[in-house]
Simulated scan of single mutants.
Amino acid sequence: MDLFSRSWTALRTAVAELSDEDFAQPSGCTGWLVRDLVCHLVIDAQDVLITLVTPAEGEPTCDAVTYWTVAETPPTGDDPLDALIVRLAAAYQEPWLLKFRLDDVGSAAGRAAELADPHLRVGTRDAVLTAGDYLSAYVLEWTLHHLDLIAHLPDAAQPPAEGLARSREMLEQIAGSAFPASFSDKDALLVGTGRRAPTDAENAELGALAAKLPLVIG
């Protein structure tokens, strides 16, 4: 849960440090500009708040890793929900409004996470899991979206090293196989989720794992 807070704080700080011009740059999410991704983060923060106050009965049906599902095809940006994000982001018009909204809702989500009982069972996406596992799952979400945010912003701050390492571990568990030791945590995440194509040398090192990639998680 501490890693959730560190990863989330780092991501929100990175957004706060963006220039107005940065919001018009492409993000690492297909079909989304940076402003669209920031709007998505606002909705993510709302989801965290909703889930943490939605107690559930019964035994957990998933944990921090099995919470994620793997789609068969990469996103194209044409999905109706993805298109809705673009329209919502455009409605904010000024970047500072998006920054303000993320800071407002994001801070509340961060406080809710710090106050949450990690053993509390919560319900979301037709699943039951502990609040601790739910927040741990979101370390992967925050880390990947931090990489998406700065995909075309070379001077922006990188995600926390511990968040990258934990996210790599989770992705390896999802894949059922470890990435080569020569891959940095960042490269393992980018290549593993299809955010960039592997080089010929990397593809050779991946071996049998290459056939499983990309892992389109959601």
Rank of each mutant, 00 (worst) to 15 (best):
A71N: 10
A10N: 12
P60L: 13
V48T: 13
A10G: 12
D36R: 01
S27T: 08
G218N: 06
V48K: 03
S5M: 03
E94S: 05
T61E: 05
W96P: 00
D78P: 00
M1W: 10
S177R: 15
L190V: 02
T73Q: 15
R196N: 05
A45F: 07
E17V: 01
R121N: 08
S27I: 07
T51M: 00
I217Q: 02
T143W: 09
W142R: 10
V139T: 11
R12E: 12
F183R: 09
R101D: 13
L102Q: 06
D82A: 15
P60R: 15
R87K: 14
D78K: 12
C62G: 02
V48G: 01
S182R: 13
A14R: 05
G123R: 15
S177P: 01
G192W: 03
T13D: 09
P154F: 06
L88G: 04
L41W: 03
K186Y: 04
Y134N: 01
R121E: 01
A113T: 14
G123C: 11
P159D: 02
L37I: 05
L135R: 13
I217E: 04
A157Q: 08
V15F: 02
G58D: 06
L147R: 06
Q173W: 04
P180D: 10
R168C: 10
G28D: 11
A131Q: 06
I50T: 11
C29P: 02
A151I: 01
F183Q: 08
A204S: 09
A108P: 00
T130Q: 01
L98Q: 13
A181Q: 11
V122R: 15
A151T: 14
D117F: 05
A91D: 12
T13V: 04
W32R: 08
A109C: 10
D79C: 03
L147D: 02
R6G: 00
A137E: 00
P95R: 05
A56Q: 10
E172I: 14
L213V: 02
V122N: 14
H146D: 08
P198T: 06
